[in-house]
């Protein structure tokens, strides 16, 4: 009997401790989670990512194939699929671009609407005209943006992506890399450009568009 009372008391004490923990937890958890979650929601409102990892922090200026000036934050709001190329590339770039075109065509309307493609030339000799001709040759629609920039800007973007390149004769030795950015410009996925896995690319795009969209 005495043993039972002791056990009951111990149980009561334990449950009191447990209840206290529960109450403290119930009060503290929202505070804790709000302190983590609130900046994210806030960041979406202000179109700034919370991780400090957004590529859109880079301040470089770029020029499109129709001679418009563009800054990377202008790409905000869509899932962007990014590849570095040069227009007279006779090696892997056309394959990468073709692969992305096939991928673009395979996207469902919902994803297609939220996805854009960016090709950046690593060749300082590529002009806007060269890019426009490239657009025509490769039959790229208005979901594709073609950019050129200064040697410094290209080196910085490439280094940020982990893309290596070096002029060799009139060609470049270069990595083959496809990068998927979410609406805030954070890298969600990277894969080798040639012979890459289309399924991985698709799941990356789905992850990227699952992020809250930014009103631009």
């Amino acid at each position: 009997m005495r043993g039972m009372i002791l056990a009951l008391r111990r149980y009561a004490r334990a449950s009191a401790v447990f209840a206290t923990l529960l109450i403290v937890g119930a009060v503290a958890a929202p505070l804790y989670f709000r302190s983590n979650a609130a900046p994210a929601a806030h960041a979406v409102d202000n179109s700034i990512d919370n991780s400090g990892l957004s590529l859109y922090q880079l301040t470089s200026t770029w020029t499109t194939d129709d001679n418009r000036a563009v800054k990377l934050p202008d790409l905000r709001g869509h899932c962007q699929i990014l590849a570095l190329i040069f227009t007279h590339c006779s090696g892997t770039c056309p394959l990468t671009v073709k692969e992305l075109e096939v991928f673009a065509a395979s996207l469902h309307a919902r994803l297609k609407d939220q996805t854009r493609f960016v090709l950046v030339t690593i060749d300082p000799a590529d002009s806007s005209d060269d890019l426009r001709r490239y657009r025509e040759t490769m039959k790229l629609n208005d979901h594709w943006m073609l950019l050129r920039g200064s040697t410094d800007s290209v080196r910085e973007l490439a280094a940020t992506l982990g893309f290596s390149y070096q002029p060799q004769g009139d060609q470049f030795a270069h990595s083959n890399l496809i990068t998927v950015l979410d609406a805030q410009g954070v890298i969600v996925h990277q894969q080798p450009g040639v012979g890459g896995n289309r399924r991985d690319l698709l799941s990356a795009v789905e992850r990227a568009v699952a992020q809250p969209r930014v009103k631009s």
């Binding site: 892997t92 080196r155 490439a158 280094a159 982990g162 893309f163 290596s164 390149y165 070096q166 030795a173 270069h174 990595s175 083959n176 890399l177 990277q190 894969q191 080798p192 040639v194 012979g195 896995n197």
Partner: peptide, 22 residues
């Protein structure tokens, strides 16, 4: 150096892991 990222791994048969050629 400015162009530390100037030497790509020249492996045409890159494996599935994107960082392995690096």
């Amino acid at each position: 150096t400015e162009d530390f990222n100037s030497i790509p791994a020249m492996n045409s048969n890159e494996s599935a892991r994107p960082d392995s050629p690096l």
